[in-house]
Design a protein around this nucleic acid. Structure first.
Ligand code: MN
Ligand code: MN
Ligand code: ZN
Ligand code: ZN
Lengths: 140, 140
DNA sequence: TGGATAGAAGATAATTATTTTCCTTTAAGT
DNA sequence: ACTTAAAGGAAAATAATTATCTTCTATCCA
């Protein structure tokens, strides 16, 4: 179920509201981090005639407007998610799931600025390992 | 000029030593972070007949053996670098340069483990912003 | 130090991934 | 409802990556 928030947001980002776009937002809202192929497969069930190009075009348009963001993950295809409060990611190398994690970045940011002399205005932090479920499976 | 260290290393990773591979290592050793296309263009000057497939095959083989590593950067094609002591990256959004930066990750790692309950064994940290040169150019 | 041989290079074809084109359909404003 | 700019779908065009096959060569060993 799509909350009007997202519809409003689509509008506010000057993205014309179409059934396909609503479905994309719903998929992203409910599943979190999806690849182009994931999205396509998900949408196919609701729109048997949807074109893969439509998925690409929409994701690109939404990215352009910063309504969605790409997440590049080691050893995996890029995932896309609705833009939200800035956060880092944890990835399970076993079951491949991707989750958000909110951590304080001030300390490391200060150190990076200090060491590099760069003016930093964005960070992309990916932590890879084993999720709790896969940890127990592994020790079993 | 290639230092025998790298040749030894190539050997120790069971990678047969060929002129093309030596050149790839030299390129990476001297330029740091290169895309497939960067590498191909660089090698073309020394090996006018080299095939793009050779670059792909070699980089894949070297990645397989963990002799080189892929670095995924937002808004850019993947870069490759010789594997070395673990480090983070700063990227200039203006001139696109990529540099290594060594920072302490203990604090943030502990927090990520604490918040996510994941067992973390790898981190990929990319900080994007303006390099010192581009900062001055921009304020000029 | 000359084969023998596994593996690499090069050329090219085949796949796979992504973008673009072109025409039809539709959302959104009037 | 009418108009129009934009979106969808199908297919073609590009780009990126991998596979195949033949020729070449680095490495091993007698
Ligand atoms: Mn996320
Ligand atoms: Mn690096
Ligand atoms: Zn898992
Ligand atoms: Zn710069």
């Amino acid at each position: 179920m799509i909350m009007k928030d997202n519809l409003e947001l689509l509008k506010s980002y000057q993205l014309k509201i179409t059934p396909q776009r609503i479905a994309i937002v719903e998929e992203l809202a409910s599943h979190g981090h999806l690849s182009i192929e994931d999205l396509y497969q998900g949408l196919l069930e609701r729109f048997p005639t949807i074109s893969l190009a439509t998925v690409y075009k929409n994701i690109n348009a939404m990215e352009e407007k910063e309504f969605v963001q790409e997440v590049k993950i080691p050893e995996q295809k890029s995932k896309y998610e609705l833009t939200k409060a800035h956060h880092a990611h944890v990835v399970c190398q076993e079951c491949k799931k991707v989750e958000d994690v909110v951590v304080s970045t001030k300390t490391i940011l200060d150190e990076v600025k200090d060491v590099s002399h760069y003016r930093i205005n964005r960070d992309d932090l990916i932590f890879t390992g084993l999720c709790p479920e896969c940890v127990v499976k592994q020790s079993a």
